[in-house]
Simulated assay, not measured.
Amino acid sequence: MERKFLTMVVFSLIISLFLAACSKDGSMDHGNMDQNSNKKQTDPNHDGMNHGDMTPSSQKDNTNVEFSFKENPESGKQIPLDIKVNNKDGKPIKDFEVEHEKLMHLIVVSKDLSYFDHIHPEYKGNGLFTVTPNFPSGGEYKIYADFTPKEGSKTVKSNVVTVAGNKAKTTPLTEDKELTKVVDGKEVTLKFDHLMTGMDLTMTFTINDAKTKQPIKNLQPYLGAVGHVVAISGDTETYLHVHPMDEKATGPNAKFMTSFPKSGLYKIWGQFQQNGKVFTVPFTINVPK
């Protein structure tokens, strides 16, 4: 009986040591698959921006992006912007994946997030993209280049631009108390299944006709999907580009899944298309801890 008891004790100790070793060295860090990891990158062109897709945050970023205007940008003037994508050795990255019908998505926002534009640079080859942004007034803007090199991970690079010209009045970012807006004859309501940091959540845009209140069921694909959502934090340090859960939906509901890596104010822009016209609906939310 005593020998049997000692055998059981030794066996238990061996199992405990084995489990401890596995926990230390072989456990899966689910944070590495968090689509919204906000870790800073060593590349000075990269702010640790979050793109809203399931890309392991531990995957090494091997890109360096140069943003250069043909001349100093000024409001009201058409000044081309070159975006050059190289690897860390300074050699051009030549091949890119098509993401929602485009090789690169460029998001332009004013510092106070009152201005938003979603445009698509033209690829000239050899790692060079070019586009002419519209800056409606002078002041500070932030641009986000969103792209995926072939055999690489989805990447977002950002750059702050100071634009000459008369500055617009700054609009403080404040939380929307009602998440229903009327834009281009559409009444759009935004709802969350729950709203907190660090958790996957579903946000649903419900789109009705503003006059008749009837549900709109004939949304058309915009860049290959029922809609697109961009969310940027009030300090512009966190960027989310979120695609719909059901890309082939036609309304009235469009559902998106994401998570917010930190609390605070976020500006959200939902973009949809009906009858050949794209409409953009902005909301400002306060994400609690």
Rank of each mutant, 00 (worst) to 15 (best):
K4T: 09
V9H: 04
F11L: 15
I15V: 15
S16A: 15
S16I: 12
G26W: 13
G26L: 11
G31W: 07
M33L: 15
Q35R: 06
N38A: 15
D43W: 06
D47P: 00
N50K: 12
M54A: 14
M54F: 13
P56M: 06
P56L: 04
S57A: 12
S58K: 12
K60T: 12
D61F: 06
N62T: 14
K70D: 12
E71K: 14
P73K: 02
P73E: 03
G76A: 03
I79E: 10
P80V: 07
V85D: 09
N87W: 09
K88V: 14
K94S: 03
D95H: 05
F96C: 09
F96I: 01
H100W: 09
L103M: 14
V108G: 10
V108R: 05
K111V: 04
L113D: 01
L113W: 02
L113A: 08
S114W: 09
H118P: 05
G125W: 09
L128P: 06
T130Y: 00
T132W: 05
P133Y: 06
E140V: 13
V161H: 01
V163I: 05
N166G: 11
K169Q: 13
K181A: 07
K181G: 05
T189M: 01
H194T: 00
H194L: 00
L195W: 15
L195S: 07
D209F: 10
D209I: 08
A210R: 09
I216T: 07
L219A: 10
Q220N: 13
V226Q: 09
G227R: 01
I232H: 07
T236S: 03
T238G: 10
V242Q: 06
H243D: 05
T250C: 00
A254T: 02
S259C: 06
F260H: 12
I268D: 04
F272Q: 01
F279D: 07
N286F: 00
V287H: 09
P288R: 12
P288A: 08
